[in-house]
Simulated scan of single mutants.
Amino acid sequence: MRCQPQYDGPVYIWLKNKQICLLCSEPADEATPICTDCETELPWLGDQCQTCALPLPAAGLTCGQCLHEPPPFQRVVAPWLYDFPLDSLITRFKHNAKWPYGRLLGELLAQFLQHRYDEGLARPDALVPVPLAVKRLRQRGFNQAVMLARWLGDSLDIASDEHLLKRVQDTSAQQELKAEARKKNLRHAFALVPGAQVVGRHLVLVDDVLTTGATAQALARLLMEAGAARVDVYCLARTPKPG
């Protein structure tokens, strides 16, 4: 695991009352390091599929894919569309080890989820980060999904179970593949850790971005077949359907 990467700006102490916005460097209005203007201008996800959160032209709809082939997870919860500047923030966090950006987005996601809980969204028994291949973990030095799950767990007082799932095959990078190829790429790629406690539990998969949903479906199917009562997906952003 690598040390905290070099960062030339202020060191953000998350218990401080005064923060500087990480996006524009102006004083933040709250304890979270983002100002009201920048937070408002993030690409908030509007009308969406009630199951997979795919952006749709109207509220209260289910996309054709979920109607035709219902996924094994029950609901995807994502606050943002994968668009500028959020895509840049996630890339810097994930590929350039700029952890303050990831922590900021994790805190905002936790606030969003707490609001959804207050509105009736079922709280899970545990947060389960999407596992990373050993080779990729060594190259990157950290698993962004594990870090997000820990930050969410601390903020929401929900257990983060990092030792429930494992990746048993190092597959090709998903970004390079189309939807059907992604599904084939992930066949037999994951497994439960021996002794994993799954039966009867409401579990949530945590990842940074949901694109085709192939990874989430593979993992959710594995958990449901092992006896989970319900599986949801929490992520920072949802991509629109190509075209």
Results as ranks from 00 to 15, higher is better:
109 L>G: 06
39 E>K: 09
235 C>F: 08
84 F>L: 06
130 V>W: 00
158 I>D: 08
66 C>H: 11
234 Y>G: 07
89 L>E: 05
101 Y>E: 11
38 C>N: 02
207 D>A: 00
112 F>Y: 14
85 P>S: 10
202 H>F: 03
41 E>C: 01
53 A>T: 14
240 P>K: 12
75 R>C: 08
96 N>W: 04
176 E>H: 13
6 Q>T: 12
150 R>P: 08
169 Q>S: 10
167 R>D: 10
156 L>S: 07
140 R>I: 12
81 L>Q: 07
174 Q>V: 09
54 L>H: 08
231 V>H: 02
35 C>H: 11
32 T>N: 05
63 C>R: 15
159 A>T: 14
40 T>W: 00
18 K>N: 11
142 F>I: 12
16 K>V: 07
201 R>G: 05
18 K>S: 11
122 A>E: 15
109 L>E: 06
172 S>G: 02
105 L>K: 03
216 A>L: 06
160 S>W: 09
8 D>A: 11
102 G>R: 08
187 R>K: 00
53 A>F: 04
103 R>Q: 09
165 L>V: 15
84 F>G: 10
114 Q>N: 12
243 G>S: 09
60 G>C: 03
157 D>G: 10
47 D>S: 14
18 K>V: 14
150 R>I: 07
236 L>D: 07
77 V>Q: 03
159 A>C: 02
77 V>G: 01
32 T>H: 05
37 D>E: 15
36 T>I: 13
225 E>Y: 07
30 E>K: 09
94 K>P: 02
92 R>Y: 01
148 L>S: 03
60 G>A: 08
132 L>Y: 03
104 L>A: 03
99 W>I: 11
215 T>D: 00
29 D>L: 06
117 Y>N: 13
138 R>V: 14
202 H>V: 13
203 L>P: 10
146 V>L: 09
4 Q>C: 11
195 G>W: 08
234 Y>I: 09
136 R>I: 06
141 G>S: 04
171 T>V: 13
192 L>P: 11
93 F>P: 05
216 A>E: 10
223 L>K: 08
105 L>G: 04
83 D>W: 05
72 P>D: 11
46 G>H: 11
142 F>T: 14
118 D>W: 00
19 Q>C: 00
18 K>H: 14
199 V>E: 15
4 Q>A: 12
185 N>P: 12
23 L>V: 04
127 L>S: 08
186 L>Y: 06
160 S>C: 14
39 E>P: 04
80 W>G: 03
86 L>F: 01
36 T>E: 07
133 A>E: 15
3 C>D: 13
168 V>Q: 09
198 V>N: 05
200 G>K: 06
103 R>G: 02
160 S>E: 14
150 R>D: 13
173 A>P: 15
27 P>E: 10
158 I>Q: 08
155 S>C: 13
228 A>D: 13
226 A>G: 15
117 Y>L: 10
165 L>F: 09
6 Q>N: 08
114 Q>W: 05
210 L>F: 07
92 R>Q: 12
33 P>S: 02
